[in-house]
């Protein structure tokens, strides 16, 4: 009886301790490399809601566009009656559709010219928390996506490295971008062939850093030099553009150069990506 009273009296504290313990246990398991990770289950389940949220966003976006277009058409109708200038009307939606058409044609052409098999995907959501930098795409295990597949995008007419698949759900996946602090990419300077490792600082609009390039290479490097994947790791195929040199630092206390890169892709504006399935 007294135990029950004690439990009842400390109900809140016991619940708090239990929830914290569950969180800690989850962290212990999550941060280890288990074959079946709890996130995969949650990702599969929540991916449905992310897709729904994205669809709702698209629906409202189209509705707002339609309402805006209706208002525009009404104004044009009045203009027609008064000024007979119907031919001047170009609606926002037509412009938007034309622009989208151009983008999709570019993406299609990009996809068809790749030398490796790829799975096109659309970005449907960004990381909801602020301490990590992943984003979700609308393709998952059912589309053949697996962990650690490379993700690229078409940007300014060339292919650029976006990141790799970090979590896979049934119909959605989470991409770890190159600028994530946990991302490391084996890279090579396209012109001088020096090799190094590219990593980020977790900020999508920041610069990437390439390390482990010997100091002796400094005189050969210049701003604007292109850095590509070296293909030395099993994840990223060779020759994908990562970025261009923005600055080269040779610090006295470091044994190698620290090279700042301007990423080839604007990660905050990527809408469509391609998951590299395998080399053809």
């Amino acid at each position: 009886m007294r135990v029950r009273e004690q439990l009842s009296r400390h109900k809140e504290s016991i619940t708090f301790a239990t929830l914290i313990a569950v969180s800690l246990f989850s962290l212990v398991f999550s941060t280890e490399s288990l074959r079946v990770r709890p996130e995969q289950i949650g990702q599969s389940f929540l991916g449905v809601f992310q897709q729904a949220g994205s669809a709702i966003g698209s629906f409202f976006g189209r509705t707002v566009t339609s309402v805006r277009e209706l208002a525009e058409l009404q104004r044009q109708h009045a203009d027609l009656i008064e000024q007979l200038r119907a031919y001047e009307a170009v609606t926002d939606e037509v412009e938007a559709l034309r622009a989208e058409n151009v983008r999709l044609r570019g993406a299609l052409a990009f996809s068809e010219t790749q030398s490796f098999e790829n799975i096109p995907a659309r970005v449907i959501g960004k990381e909801p928390g602020s301490f990590f930098a992943g984003f979700s795409i609308n393709r998952g295990r059912t589309a053949g996506i697996e962990r650690n597949m490379a993700v690229i995008a078409s940007w300014d007419g060339t292919q650029g490295l976006v990141g790799r698949i970090a979590e896979v759900g049934l119909t959605t996946s989470v991409v770890m971008p190159v600028f994530d602090a946990n991302s490391f990419v084996a890279a090579r300077l396209l012109r001088t062939r020096h090799e190094g490792i590219v990593s980020g600082d977790g900020v999508s609009q920041g610069l990437l850093t390439m390390r482990y390039v010997p100091k002796s290479a400094q005189s050969e490097l210049g701003v604007g030099d292109v850095i590509v994947t070296s293909g030395m790791s099993s994840i990223f195929p060779e020759g994908i553009r990562i970025g261009t040199i923005e600055a080269v630092h040779a610090r006295a206390y470091e044994t190698s150069l620290s090279i700042e890169l301007r990423p080839a892709v604007d990660y905050s504006r990527v809408e469509y990506v391609f998951v590299v399935k395998e080399r053809m």
Binding site: S23, S30, E39, I41, G42, G125, F132, S136
Partner: peptide, 9 residues
């Protein structure tokens, strides 16, 4: 946690 890259917990 489940929607992004954060470890569960």
């Amino acid at each position: 946690d489940a929607m992004g890259l954060a470890p569960l917990g």
